[in-house]
Each structure stands twice: as structure tokens, then as C-alpha cells.
Design a protein around this nucleic acid. Sequence first.
DNA 1: GTCTATAACGGGATAGAC
DNA 2: GTCTATCCCGTTATAGAC
Lengths: 204, 204
Amino acid sequence: MSKIDLSTEEKIKDAAKKIFLEKGFGSATTRDIAECADTNIALVNYYFRSKEKLFLEIFRESFVETFAPAARILEDNLPLEAKIYKFVDHMTELLKRDPLLPMFVFSEMRDENSKMCELASHLNTDKSARFQEQLEEEAAKGNIRKTDFQQVEVSLMSMVLFPFLGMNMLKAKKNMSTEEFYRFVDERKKNIPEMILAYLRCRE
Amino acid sequence: MSKIDLSTEEKIKDAAKKIFLEKGFGSATTRDIAECADTNIALVNYYFRSKEKLFLEIFRESFVETFAPAARILEDNLPLEAKIYKFVDHMTELLKRDPLLPMFVFSEMRDENSKMCELASHLNTDKSARFQEQLEEEAAKGNIRKTDFQQVEVSLMSMVLFPFLGMNMLKAKKNMSTEEFYRFVDERKKNIPEMILAYLRCRE
DNA sequence: GTCTATAACGGGATAGAC
DNA sequence: GTCTATCCCGTTATAGAC
């Protein structure tokens, strides 16, 4: 189905996603969205009641249906090394398709009292601590060093997400084109797991 | 000099910094700033001409005078290991004093065409490639592995900055208090250099 | 330098015709 | 479902009195 055949509601939602991800809730306007969807403000409110309701729908989808599931790869049932490679690879590919996603999610959680923070802690129910158990098991077997799993988890997330959060800074500082940036994050698919695994495995 | 003795101009600037860092340019209002500085909108415009001019001054100071100098520790003249520890320590202490700084800088650079991106690439003049040279020298001596210095640099930055960018996400997901968060990043002062150095030193 | 009042504008939302 | 016209509010900026 080509883009032109989408229902008005779908066109508005697609436009809203694009605009909100580019500008954030505060700087995006209903006018932007309507224009981008090739309709008018009245229809945006007809389908979604308000800018805020529309936004919450986009945020929920981005976070709950896209971001969180990818992060959950760490809870999969896979050997440690394979899992880390899979996580970095899948997450990187996801972010290459949707490079503004991390900044969108995190910038809307800048205010500690925002609805988005509430939403995120709400979704904090399924804590299958498989990754933590796995690190502890491997450490007990002597395969890796004993370590704080939260530190490892955050470092892993950091190294994958940060380049996208600081994409324009990186491009500015290193004079990178978009293609070079994507090559750079592709190289990290090998680099990041190597670093994590070197840390976990090397004695000291 | 106590806060109450500051000149009106200084009070406005302090207030503007606080408000802009909390909300970003788009969501901050001149009213917020005036109220926070305990004056009125007219005076804000009297001293700074417009919201945008005020903002640019705050951004310049935050970026040029605070953020960039800290990042430049990597170009210091120090042995590799000591330098990495110093960088992580100093940067973490800076961010503990100003935890909103990374999100402020990066979120304002979300739009590729923003003035802030221009500013950042403008400041891209002093590229003393001391850190790069150092990694290459040590690799030539066989002390560390041969590696892409940009990957190492970005990973290092990632691990230090990311927790502050995702502070509220982290707090929500891990049910952390502010104190626990600060304890967490303090532990990373040891953890991050260990990871980088394990990667650089371990053969494979 | 400081304040009050107001102009000029842009934003979200809705009424009502079709 | 769709559109035009409009309302109402918050925002930036400034004029003008003190």
C-alpha cells in the first residue's frame, strides 16, 4: 500500500511521529503536523482529541513497542557472548532506521515529573533478571570476573545509544557525513562487544 | 557575595541558565525566567534584547566554557592510564554539579541545521590530536592493542555522559534515588577506566 | 534601571457548514 | 469525515511613565 493510500488517521500519525521525533513535544506544533500530513488542524484534533493525546500515543509506541523490546534482548536465553553481539547488532540496526528515537525518548524524560517518567517506571514490571543471573553464574564458574551487572548493562547501553544521542555533535566534531556516521556505528558492532568481553574476561 | 546581592543582570542570567537547562529553549518561557530571577519580562529584554540572544549566551558559556574544556583533558600531557582516570573523575564531578548539562547541549543540537551545530563545528579548530598520537605510540611500543582511537574516544565519552543523559530513565528502571544515582556514577569512576584499559591491554 | 500596560503574534482547540 | 473561520490564551517584545 503506497503512502498516498493511507487513511487520514494513519497519515496524521505518521506525520506526528516525524515531527515529534524531530522537534520534541514543546517545539512541535499541531500546525506542523497537519501540514506534514497534508490536512488541517481540525482533523488532527478530530482523530486524536488534542496535541497531548496524540503525543502520548506516539511516545507509547516508540517506547513500549520499539525501544523496550530491543533492550529486552539482554534477557533472552542465549550464551553470553552471542547475546552481547546480538544485542549490539539488533539495537544498532534499529537505531539506523530510527536515529532520532533515543533523543526523543530521553529528552521527553528530562523533567523528572513528566508523564513519560511515570510511564517508564510503570512499565518496570517485567524484571526478568536473566542477564544479571547469567553474569553471576559465569562469574561463579570462573569464566568472567565478578562485577556489578548494572555497571555492565549501563556501559553496554551507553556505547550503543550515545552516538545517536550525540549524532550531530559527533558529525560536527569529526566532520562526518551521514554515511560516515553509519559506517562508524557499524564498526562499533564489533568494537563494543570486544570491549565488554575484554573487560569481563581479562584478569587483573 | 550572597545571591541577593547579585546585579539584576546576573540574577537574570542565573535564572535563565536554570530554566533553559531544565526545559530547553522551546519549552522555556521568558516569563519563567523573569519570575525565577524575581523581576519582570521587560528587564530580561532590556538586558539581553531577546530570548534567543539570552539563550545563545547561556549555551555558549555552557558549551565553550564548561563542557569543551573538560573534554580537552584527553589532550593533556599525561601517561595514558592516569589521563583516563583523570578524565573520568573530573568529568563526573563536573556533571554531578551540573547534571542537566549534557542533555541541554545535545538536545539543542538535535536539529542538524540549528545554530548550535554551527557553533560546535566552528569551535572545531583546535584539534591537538594528542590522545590519538598517544594511543598510536603505545600501540607501536606494544603496550596496548592497535585500535581506532575515535572508537575508544567515543566509548569513553559514552560511558561517562550517558548516565546523565538517561538519568531519569535509569532512576525509573532501577528505582534509584538521587543519592543512589550519584553513588552509581561514583563507582563508574573506577569501572569505566578499568573497562577501557582492559580492552586496550588484553590481547586477542 | 525599573515597572505597568499593551501591542503583535502564534499556538491549540472548536463551532458549524458541507 | 472534512474544511473554513474563529475564539481564546500564552508568549515575546516594546512604549512610555517613573
